[in-house]
Design a protein around this nucleic acid. Structure first.
Lengths: 237, 237
DNA sequence: TCAAAAGTGTTCAAGTTACACCCATGT
DNA sequence: ACATGGGTGTAACTTGAACACTTTTGA
């Protein structure tokens, strides 16, 4: 990997310890009204073939955010998706394979856009968020933290839409929030609240995959949302 | 510094780049009803003698949290204070002195407990949060992020008390929240709300430093707070 | 006696929660 | 014709916001 390194002079900071730095990605998806996580069979020792998050070491010349974006793109084929730093895990003994500090990122992706191919290449599998297997190192803790963060953030920012296809029904959206908050919501109140914000655009199209009557499809309208933000509106659900 | 290094074998991860890792601490205090930040004159090149956060490199054998605790203790004489990881800054070019990834921590300390001595030894100064000078590297951005986080977190967790002396008055507490949220609050509503939570203990003692009449002192009651948490109570202000 | 901060209740508007029935349609 | 999920309104309650005067006491 070090063939990529820029030769930083480091004339000032000689003598300080250098440490292996990694990124690990917690990847959320939403499918068949269930919240999912993408996990991988680890390809290297130690812990080869055990379930784990996907990640790799950061190169010396690489922004940490770019490293996370590249990891995500390599394993899902997607770029330009929601990806945010979560937390930095740095206990000296967290990895018996060596002293590695890991920066965890979490991503929200649209499962319908994802390339099946990439998932298979990486021996990956989508797990229900409530059926995550035992993972290597502190990866289960990372997932816990990411899920907590998602719960908090989804309440005050319209990031739920990052997990849905461009067109979705109100019952889809409700099921998404139910699986994020792990509660049941009242259909009438939910609909009233989300529609009253004025950030959804109703289409003249119905989705009949889950009922005979069919449910109207909606789109999230980013411009309307940003206009409202400017006027001091605060998303909350 | 590397005299402290454990000789990690790293038999698995050879070939990956190693990177300098640092911690930087954003230290909040509250004095004379103003929210303050502790800043330092940098002692090393590059940027020697410019204002900066306090920080140092992480050693190979050191938990990142411990490193932050030690930095805080060295410069304030305090341990066992509120200290939490904020964010990891890792653009490849953020520091012209070398490739350094920095993990920012923010701390809330009680100014009345702080040892004056330590502050002077470190050429430190307490700045009003609205009068922060230009700092080196991305330290101004770190402070912005920490202040944002404080605003969010103070709303839903009783961390404000970490900034106040053990005994404080309701007007003190109100002034603290006013300087965190940067707004004026209604005295009656504030008092009503905070007292109705049942987490403050009224003492038979008055503080007369800021008025002739004097204001009753209160203490935060951690046990009551935890009992309420168990019952599903949510702090919010 | 007066200046300066501490302390105290009520009203109104807005938002949240709870709750039950009809609709449309494919089988 | 019936089973299935989609869609609709109202009333009770809770919460947050606005607002003015009295109390205490050191100087």
């Amino acid at each position: 990997m070090s063939v990529h390194s820029v030769n930083h002079t480091n004339i000032y900071y000689q003598g300080a310890d250098k440490i292996l730095l990694a990124v690990d990605c917690i990847i959320f998806g939403f499918d068949k009204n269930l919240l999912k996580l993408l996990l991988f069979k680890r390809k290297v020792e130690p812990f080869k073939n055990e379930w784990s998050l996907i990640g790799r070491f950061i190169r010396e010349d690489e922004n940490i955010n770019n490293a996370a974006e590249k990891v995500l793109e390599e394993c899902t084929g997607l770029n330009d998706v929601f990806l945010e730093q979560l937390f930095c895990y740095g206990d000296a003994s967290r990895d018996p394979g060596g002293r590695v500090v890991s920066i965890a990122y979490y991503a929200l992706i649209r499962l319908d856009e994802q390339k099946e191919q990439s998932v298979e290449d990486f021996h990956a599998h989508w797990f229900d968020v409530n059926e995550v297997p035992e993972l290597i190192l502190d990866h289960n803790a990372m997932i816990e933290a990411a899920f907590e963060k998602l719960k908090q953030k989804a309440r005050v920012q319209p990031i739920g839409f990052e997990l849905l296809p461009e067109k979705f029904t109100i019952p889809n959206l409700q099921a998404l929030y139910e699986s994020i908050y792990q509660v049941n919501l009242d259909g009438r109140n939910f609909r009233k609240k989300i529609l009253s914000m004025g950030i959804l655009e109703k289409l003249d199209e119905k989705d009949k995959t889950s009922s005979k009557k069919g449910a109207y499809l909606y789109k999230f309208n980013q411009e309307k949302y940003e206009n409202l933000l400017d006027k001091g509106f605060g998303f909350e659900i």
